[in-house]
């Protein structure tokens, strides 16, 4: 095993789960997540010589995000994006505790649905913050946006998600 490979196994491979999780959420659970992650890991390995000292996880997740973006671009050229299907919303509009109700369902189906209706720029910051528990700085590195933008997208994304979960209005 080469030194580069050893370093890659030690530094990058531990973040494979994070890479896959992000890909699954970016693709809204799509089967293409596997291809995106494989492509991302390969690209990461190829450029690992040029990688110096920064935190590995944001770097790797930025590559996953880029791979997702280019896959999306390619797909757009072939087919129109499917519309979100938003029927059978089980949460009543006046449900006082949507959080509890979403938890009760256990499988996170409502949450999945609510998250998948969020525009990608909001969905990705919420996933990175809430599931990967990344700092604003690292999220900024993954998404290639200034920290201020991360903060405002998080605020907006959370408000949208809450509105989606409670079936309330969007202009919170």
């Amino acid at each position: 095993m080469s030194e580069k490979r050893r370093r890659f196994e030690a530094l990058a491979m531990p973040h494979l789960d994070a890479a896959y999780n992000l890909a699954r959420w970016l693709t809204r659970g799509g089967a293409e997540a596997d291809d995106i992650v494989q492509e991302a890991m390969l690209r990461a390995f190829r450029s690992f010589d040029g990688f110096r000292g920064e935190a590995v996880r944001p770097w790797l997740l930025a590559i996953v995000r880029n791979c997702h973006r280019s896959a999306l671009e390619q797909k757009k050229r072939h087919v129109a994006a499917p519309l979100d299907d938003r029927d059978d919303t089980e949460i009543a509009a006046d449900d006082p505790t949507p959080e509890a109700s979403a938890i009760r369902h256990g499988d996170g189906r409502e949450l999945n649905k609510a998250l998948s209706t969020l525009p990608e720029e909001f969905r990705e910051v919420i996933i990175l913050r809430e599931l990967e528990e990344m700092s604003y700085r690292d999220i900024a590195a993954v998404t290639g946006t200034p920290i201020g933008t991360v903060m405002s997208r998080l605020a907006r994304g959370r408000a949208l998600l809450k509105a989606e979960l409670t079936g309330g209005s969007h202009d919170v």
Partner: peptide, 13 residues
């Protein structure tokens, strides 16, 4: 939201 997200599936490779 934190409580809700705690129920979100984490997709392991």
């Amino acid at each position: 939201l934190k409580a809700v997200m705690a129920a979100a599936p984490y997709h392991r490779a």
